[in-house]
């Protein structure tokens, strides 16, 4: 059985359990069965299944994480140059009673909201807003928490005219030695340089079902095989799951998700994430900033070493 079939069967069993008046022993038996099937389903998850979970409309978005993880969030708008990109949700807040800067790529939870937020595709003014908030954080010695959830930078005409490439390049350049701790959380989808611009961080943590890749599988299939319909196949060869990225040393930690994804039981995910962030921020807080920046440089410096020989 593949993931979809298993999911259906699990759903049927749940209905059975709810609908019928059953003896406790029978209920227990069904629970056991569900547990086993869930375990099997998780093992059978194809990268494409994870991508589907990651892209689901009902999956928690950056705004949900901000609401649950931080207090007194004050949104700050605009890049002071051109405009305000609503695909970026940025501001200041408390995390565990300490001020932090949050810069998040924010998708919507409905079609309407997604249109307003451009489906999380960031424009140059969004990257420049992020840069402004990052420099502000550096000035006031606030750690930065970035949240990644984007299929990629916006491929639009205006975006090109206003220097999409330059804006992303400047993010990579500036974050590489910004003198304050940075932690990046990939909550759902991280695609292309548009996601990387928010990922030059001291620690990168990914949710279990989140994906991160050089390009969306649709784009990948279209460029490499000239066939967008082979996206599912592309997802498998692209090695884009959290486990793939952990193995390659690109990310530092995976936050476990309940069966079916963070959307099924959000508190479990936010609590683990909170613990992780608290621990890492405390550790970073003990270090000298020069040491942190040096380690950040070294971390990216070593990426790709297995892929060449002299």
């Amino acid at each position: 059985m593949n993931f979809e079939e298993l999911e259906k069967k699990i759903a049927q069993l749940r209905i059975q359990k709810e609908m019928l008046e059953l003896e406790d022993s029978k209920r227990f038996q069904i629970d056991q069965e569900i547990y086993e099937l869930e375990k099997e389903a998780v093992q059978n998850l194809e990268p494409w299944d994870r991508l589907t979970i990651a892209r689901a409309l009902d999956r928690p978005k950056a705004q949900d994480y901000i609401q649950y993880l931080f207090t007194d969030f004050i949104e700050l708008h605009g890049d002071r140059r051109f405009g305000d990109d609503s695909s970026i949700l940025g501001g200041i807040a408390y995390f565990e009673n300490k001020p932090v800067t949050v810069i998040a790529q924010s998708k919507g939870k409905s079609l309407e909201e997604n249109i307003q937020k451009n489906f999380g595709m960031v424009s140059p003014e969004g990257y420049r807003k992020a840069l402004r908030l990052a420099k502000q954080a550096e000035k006031f010695h606030r750690p930065i928490i970035t949240i990644v959830d984007t299929p990629g930078a916006y491929p639009g005409m205006g975006a090109e005219e206003r220097g999409q490439a330059q804006a992303i390049a400047e993010c990579l350049y500036t974050f590489s030695d910004i003198k304050t701790p940075v932690i990046c959380v990939v909550i759902s989808e991280g695609g292309s340089g548009g996601a990387l611009a928010f990922s030059v961080a001291d620690h990168i943590v990914m949710l279990e079902n989140a994906v991160y890749s050089i390009l969306s599988p649709e784009g990948f299939a279209s460029i490499l095989w000239k066939d967008e319909t082979r996206a599912k196949e592309a997802a498998s060869v692209m090695k884009m799951t959290s486990f793939d990225l952990k193995e390659k040393g690109i990310i530092d930690h995976i936050v476990k998700e309940p069966f079916g994804g963070a959307q099924k039981y959000f508190p479990m995910v936010t609590e683990e994430l909170r613990r992780y962030l608290a621990k890492e921020l405390e550790e970073l807080g003990k270090k000298k900033i020069e040491q942190i920046v040096q380690k950040r440089y070294q971390k990216f410096r070593e990426m790709g070493i297995p892929a060449w020989k002299m």
């Binding site: 990579l172 030695d177 390659k248 990426m303 790709g304 892929a307």
Partner: peptide, 21 residues
């Protein structure tokens, strides 16, 4: 970035930019 190397090629963008910084 080179598609065939996936994420490892993507992060070269960050690596080179950091060196230039």
């Amino acid at each position: 970035a080179r598609m065939q190397e996936g994420i490892l090629s993507l992060v070269q963008m960050a690596k080179t930019s950091a060196a230039i910084k």
